[in-house]
Write a protein that binds this DNA or RNA. Structure first.
Length: 543
DNA sequence: TGGGGTCCT
DNA sequence: AGGACCC
């Protein structure tokens, strides 16, 4: 007979991840209250800080009252956190290839095979390690087998599953413990873990005991554990879905169980509805999908105000540089390049009305929506050999910006800029191509998209392609165009500039100091002619 | 509320 | 292209 709970899933959650990265790098911090700041917020903090009343996503100006001696580290540069996350991912892959990452600090491991291997070796465990949900009940049941008279009658009603999952989870708890120990001994990181027969329940179990502990959830207890939870606790049931459910009077899992699947699907859609219905009963067949590489990479910056085109270009450039650096690093390591470039903005002015209506319709908070435009770029544009890629990208991104702010004299008030690259494809790995393909095939355009400029020929060789890149990228081409149009001054963002000051660096004011107003990028004055030139350039290049 | 990321519609 | 979700 097939086992009802055949899998063993471990969910690993690094404790207060950003703070821990800082503490591992600088052990002096370990026992002191530590917070990680991004903009005006403590995004995370270590446990000593939590004991003092600091919590995640706390406004920095609340800090002095609860913890004036909080040590603050700037967390706006994610590089070291990314690197730490990669190391951890690699380490976990040493235990099993079936590792799925969620965010930077959470991992699902399907340890089913490890459990089977261990059981085959006759290494059956006789007890769990770490916490077991309602473990005290468990003890009572064991007592019961020895001496029935001492056991309260209610515990006798817990029937453990006989499919073998009990033994497997026991073994799983030991595997989880070993993994956590090795993580600490090799990399210095502590983590909490949940062990159960499905992803969702493993994740929820791990939250039960939190820093540096683990909890196993046996199937017999899943229903009872889930029943009183708010639906919002279920992974996948977020802000919006839980509001929709609340409007139907559904706030807990028990209430959710009593809603027919059909009604649920009608309320929140087939995908979420179907899954939510199953999850309410603890039914979770979703698989651990081994994480490969990111499918997109982005950098963003948020700020109080950006209202000038020149400022937009400057900020785009300061975002772009670290992004391109990441693209280069990835290319070195994996040999792939992106072929999509995307610009996303948050513009207060274009969403003012929407905000009002959203408040009225949904009755709650809203998030100022983002707007994006993306373009397809020939794969080789991001090749490190393309020295002009920075200018080229700014050119393209400004073009995308003008698609969103199309009219001259249209005012805007940006509060966020995000630049993303996506659609990574192997580049230059001729040896890996099928025989019918040569390296030339890398430059054949996707049929669904056109080249950036229709007048350009599609290059068919690598060198020709790079030449093409050079020509179409060259900022001077734009400048010359601007001159031809009789604008003496080329758009200012094409001129060489001093290194961009990372204004979003707007770096970590210490808590005792008053929040200085955000230091704006000092925009170079932009003339009417320059703006004209920008719009003309954009119009010329934009189809 | 940050600065990421994923998948679905 | 946007929405909703995750951290």
């Amino acid at each position: 007979m097939a086992a009802m709970h055949p899998r063993t899933i471990v969910h690993i959650d690094l404790d207060c991840f950003y703070a821990q990265v800082e503490m591992v790098a600088d052990p002096k911090l370990k026992d002191k209250p530590l917070g990680i700041q991004q903009k005006n917020i403590i995004v995370t903090c270590n446990y000593p800080a939590r004991a003092r009343g600091v919590h995640k996503l706390m406004y920095i100006n609340k800090v002095p009252k609860v913890c004036p001696d909080l040590i603050i580290r700037d967390g706006s540069n994610l590089k070291r956190y990314r690197e730490a996350s990669e190391k951890i991912l690699d380490h976990l892959r040493g235990w099993t290839p079936e590792v799925e990452r969620l965010g930077m600090d959470e991992f699902f491991l399907d340890v089913t095979h490890m459990v089977a291997d261990e059981q085959e070796k006759m290494e059956k465990k006789l007890d769990f390690v770490g916490h077991v949900y309602r473990g005290e009940t468990l003890t009572l049941i064991e007592t019961q087998t020895r001496n029935e008279s001492h056991v309260p009658s209610c515990t006798a009603k817990v029937h453990h599953c006989r499919c073998g999952c009990y033994q497997r989870l026991m073994t799983g708890s030991h595997i989880a413990q070993r993994i956590r120990t090795s993580l600490y001994q090799t990399l210095g990181y502590t983590a909490s873990a949940g062990i159960s027969v499905g992803k969702m329940i493993a994740k929820l179990s791990g939250e039960l005991k939190k820093p540096n502990q683990q909890t196993t959830m046996l199937p017999a207890y899943i229903d009872g554990f889930l029943a009183p939870l708010r639906v919002r606790k279920i992974p996948g049931c977020g802000y919006s879905t839980s509001k929709k459910l609340a409007s139907l009077g559904i706030e807990t899992v028990t209430q959710l169980r009593n809603l027919s699947k059909q009604k649920l699907i009608k309320a929140v859609g087939a995908q979420i509805g179907g899954r939510l219905h199953d999850l309410a009963f603890g039914l979770d067949t979703s698989h651990v999908v081994a994480t490969v590489r990111e499918k997109q990479m982005s950098e963003e910056d948020s700020f109080k105000s950006c209202t000038a085109i020149d400022d937009v270009a400057l900020r785009i450039l300061s975002i772009l540089r670290p992004l391109l650096e990441r693209v280069r690093m990835r290319f070195q390591k994996h040999g792939d390049l992106p072929s999509t470039l995307r610009l996303t903005i948050r513009d207060r002015l274009s969403h003012q009305k929407t905000e009002q209506s959203k408040i009225n319709t949904s009755g709650g908070a809203y998030f100022t929506t983002r707007t994006s435009r993306q373009t397809t770029i020939p794969l080789g544009f991001f090749h490190p050999e393309n020295k002009k890629q920075e200018g080229y990208c700014v050119d393209h991104l400004m073009k995308l910006f003008f698609k969103m702010i199309p009219r001259k004299n249209q005012r805007f008030h940006l509060t966020l800029i995000n630049v993303a690259v996506a659609r990574f494809q192997a580049f230059g790995g001729a040896g890996k191509l099928g025989k019918q393909h040569g390296i030339d095939s890398f430059f054949i355009q996707s049929p669904t998209k056109t080249a950036p400029s229709s007048e350009d020929n599609i290059p068919t060789t690598r060198m020709a392609h790079l030449e093409h890149v050079k020509h179409t990228t060259d900022a001077t081409r734009i400048s010359q165009t601007a001159r031809k149009r009789k604008f003496k001054t080329p758009p200012s963002f094409f001129r060489p500039r001093p290194p961009v000051q990372c204004t979003s660096g707007e770096r970590a004011p210490q808590p005792e100091r008053r929040q200085p107003a955000e230091q704006p990028v000092e925009p170079e004055p932009v003339t009417a002619e320059e703006i004209d030139a920008l719009y003309i350039t954009a119009a010329r290049v934009t189809p």
